[in-house]
C-alpha cells in the first residue's frame, strides 16, 4: 500500500487504494477477511506463547554459553574483548565517514584484516596470554570467528581463482575452471564432511589437525569458488578501453590488475560478495552437525541438559533472533561500503 506523498496515512487516496486492492469484489473481501483472521490469529497465539507460555530460563541461564561457548570463566574477558573490538570496528565502519579522523578511516580495511589474528591471539592465547584450546571456543564467538576466517580466506582465494581462470596459460585456466565448477557442483555439507571425516584419515597416524582450522579450510575453499565467479563477473564488466588506458600509461599487467581492474571488479561484485559473506555465516551452522559447538551446536548441547528438556522452540527462536541480528549487521556493513564506493560512480 503505497502512500501518496501529498497526504497523510488515512487520507482518501489511501482508503481508495485499500478498497481497490483488498475489497474490490465480494470474493476479494472474503479472502481479505479470512487471511486477516488467519494472520491475526497466528500472530496472537505466537505472542501469547512468547510472553505467557514460553519459559525463557533456557536462554537466560545459559547466556554465557551462547556467547562464549565453554571458554574458561576466568578468561572470558578475552572473549569479550574480541567481541567488543569487533563491535567497535562495526560501529566505526557504519559511522558517517566525516565523523572519523582520516588516519582511522584509512586504517579501517587493514583493521578488518587484523581483527582475525587479534581474535586468534585473544582466544587461543600466547604472547603472555594463557593458552586456551580451541575446543573451548564456542557459541556466537566461534560462529563469528569461523565466518571471519572463512571470508578472509575465501576472498583472496576467490580473487586469485578468478584471475587464474582468465589466465593465458591453458593448464592453469583448466585447473581453476575445473576446481570452480567441481566445487560449485558439490553440496557444502559434503565438502564439510570431507574436511572433518576424510582429512583425518589421510593424515599419518598420530597426526591431528585442529577441527576449527579444518572447518575454516573447507568452508573457505568452498566459498572461495563462489566468490571467484562473482569476481569474474566483475572483471568481465570492465570495458576494454580501461585496460588500454592503463597500458598506454605504462602500467605493467600486474599493476593493471591491482590498480585498475580489481578495484572496479570488486566494486561491481560487492553486492554478491556481501551475499556470500552472509551465506558463510549461515553455513557455519552446518558445522553443528560435525561436532563444533558454534551457535547451533552449543544449543544442541544445552537442549540435552535434563533441566531444559523440551525447550526447543524457545532456543530456536532465540537462535533465529541472534543469527538475524548478525546478518542485519553484516548487510548494513555491506550497504555502507557500497554507498561509500558509489560516490565515485554516478553523480
Amino acid at each position: 500500500m503505497a502512500e501518496s506523498p501529498r497526504s497523510g496515512p488515512w487520507s482518501r487516496p489511501l482508503l481508495r487504494q485499500i478498497r481497490r486492492g483488498l475489497f474490490a469484489s465480494p470474493l476479494d473481501t472474503v479472502i481479505t477477511v479470512v487471511l486477516a483472521v488467519l494472520c491475526g490469529g497466528g500472530l496472537w497465539s505466537f505472542l501469547h506463547w512468547v510472553f505467557l507460555q514460553a519459559d525463557w530460563a533456557v536462554v537466560v541461564e545459559n547466556i554465557r554459553l551462547y556467547i562464549h561457548g565453554r571458554f574458561p570463566v576466568e578468561q572470558v574477558w578475552r572473549s569479550w574483548s574480541w567481541l567488543g573490538l569487533l563491535g567497535v570496528l562495526c560501529l566505526a565502519t557504519l559511522m558517517p565517514a566525516r565523523m572519523l579522523p582520516r588516519p582511522v578511516l584509512r586504517l579501517l580495511p587493514l583493521l578488518w584484516i587484523l581483527i582475525l589474528p587479534i581474535g586468534l591471539l585473544l582466544l587461543a592465547g600466547g604472547l603472555g596470554f594463557e593458552p586456551v584450546k580451541s575446543r573451548f571456543w564456542g557459541g556466537l564467538q566461534l560462529s563469528l570467528l569461523l565466518t571471519l576466517g572463512t571470508v578472509l580466506m575465501a576472498l583472496p582465494l576467490g580473487i586469485l581463482l578468478a584471475l587464474a581462470r582468465r589466465s593465458s596459460l591453458p593448464l592453469l585456466r583448466w585447473l581453476t575452471t575445473g576446481y570452480i565448477e567441481l566445487t560449485r557442483g558439490m553440496p557444502l555439507i559434503a565438502v564439510l564432511f570431507f574436511g572433518q571425516l576424510m582429512i583425518p584419515l589421510f593424515l599419518p597416524e598420530g597426526w591431528t589437525f585442529n577441527r576449527v582450522l579444518r572447518a575454516v579450510l573447507s568452508l573457505g575453499f568452498f566459498v572461495g569458488a563462489y566468490m571467484a565467479e562473482d569476481v569474474r563477473g566483475g572483471l568481465q564488466s570492465i570495458p576494454k578501453t580501461q585496460l588500454e588506458a592503463a597500458r598506454s600509461l605504462g602500467l605493467s599487467p600486474l599493476l593493471t590488475v591491482a590498480l585498475v581492474e580489481l578495484p572496479q571488479a570488486l566494486r561491481t561484485a560487492l553486492p554478491s560478495l556481501a551475499n556470500q559473506c552472509v551465506a558463510s555465516l549461515q553455513s557455519t551452522s552446518l558445522l553443528a552437525y560435525l561436532g563444533l559447538i558454534e551457535l547451533l551446536g552449543i544449543s544442541r548441547s544445552i537442549l540435552g541438559n535434563p533441566s531444559f528438556l523440551g525447550r526447543h522452540l524457545e532456543v530456536y527462536i532465540w537462535l533465529a533472533l541472534l543469527y538475524w541480528a548478525v546478518c542485519i549487521l553484516m548487510t548494513s556493513l555491506a550497504r555502507r561500503l557500497e554507498r561509500t564506493l558509489k560516490v565515485s560512480d554516478h553523480h
Binding site: 554459553l65 561457548g69 565453554r70 570463566v73 559447538i293 552449543i298 540435552g304 541438559n305 535434563p306
Partner: peptide, 8 residues
C-alpha cells in the same frame, strides 16, 4: 548421557 550445564 551428555549435555552442557550452564557453567559450560
Amino acid at each position: 548421557f551428555s549435555s552442557l550445564n550452564p557453567e559450560g
